[in-house]
Write a protein that binds this DNA or RNA. Structure first.
Lengths: 154, 154
DNA sequence: ATATAATAAAGGTCAAAGATAGTCAAAATA
DNA sequence: TATTTTGACTATCTTTGACCTTTATTATAT
């Protein structure tokens, strides 16, 4: 028996195909269509449309609320993708971050100013948290920012 | 399904475009035009034409009363300093951050891509910490990034 | 004519109700 | 055991309406 989550995944992917990699839908509507709990939609999004898999989710609550799924334009040997999926991991130090950011600047992927913004924002001095948390926070933010760069390129 | 508040927002913005950044209107008239409660106009003004978004509202009650919406045009460096030294403070929400960042983008202080990097990096979803810490972390990072922008320009 | 009181004509505030989406952990299933 | 499904509870955003405040105009008294 095919799992419902997989069916929903396929459904969303077929919608994405017909909409140029960007799609907006309503959680409750979709849940009703598949006769499942609304939170199952969140489960599908979290497990099948994660950053690691090349998707980015935005949403809004309240009247007229929605969920937007953006399919990132993935080039298999994209260096940014490697950073996001393999290099950065769960936690990263300030020095490693600086090295990575300087590197993508030198490659011409980001500007001097973008590099400066990211480096100062993710410095130890800026993230005033216990060291163990700091590395995690930094990794999450850095990965998210690289996604923004990936997205802005196409 | 489209939010009425967004429609009213767009309407006001199109009026502003044709009137050089300053506009006077009557609350009840507008409410009647959109068939909504007059207080919804206040809601739109408060959420879409806030200071953070670069607008200033004046009004007057009684006979001949009006609401005036002024699109602010500020000195870039002064505004950045104001944000860093007064506006942001110890903690700031995701929505306020988005408003501010969108505003400085519209003013030409940062690029689209820089705005996207900052907004995605400082989203609730990115900083996965208890809500109280999140606001503090965000405020510190945002201020640091604005400093980088201030330094990199001029 | 002048001061004052009543009325009308705006706009403001706030909280409740309505509309979505998110989280988390227990229960079910593979 | 790991993954999936469900549901109770939470968070956020929008819409509405009852009640409040301010300003202008008109009526009244002196």
């Amino acid at each position: 028996m095919a799992r419902l989550s997989d069916i929903i995944e396929d459904f969303i992917k077929s919608l994405l195909k017909h909409s140029e990699g960007e799609l907006q839908l309503q959680r409750n509507e979709l849940a009703e269509y598949f006769e499942c709990a609304p939170s199952q939609i969140n489960y599908v999004l979290a497990t099948r449309f994660s950053l690691d898999r090349g998707y980015y989710i935005e949403s809004r609550r309240g009247g007229g609320g929605f969920i937007r799924i953006v399919q990132l334009d993935l080039d298999k040997d994209d260096y940014l993708l490697y950073l996001i999926n393999s290099r950065i991991g769960k936690s990263i130090s300030e020095q490693e971050t600086k090295d990575i950011v300087t590197n993508i600047m030198e490659k011409g992927i980001i500007s001097d100013r973008e590099a400066a913004i990211i480096k100062i924002g993710l410095a130890d001095k800026t993230i005033l948290m216990p060291a163990n948390l700091r590395g995690t926070i930094r990794a999450n933010i850095l990965k998210a920012m690289l996604v923004a760069i990936l997205r802005a390129r196409s």
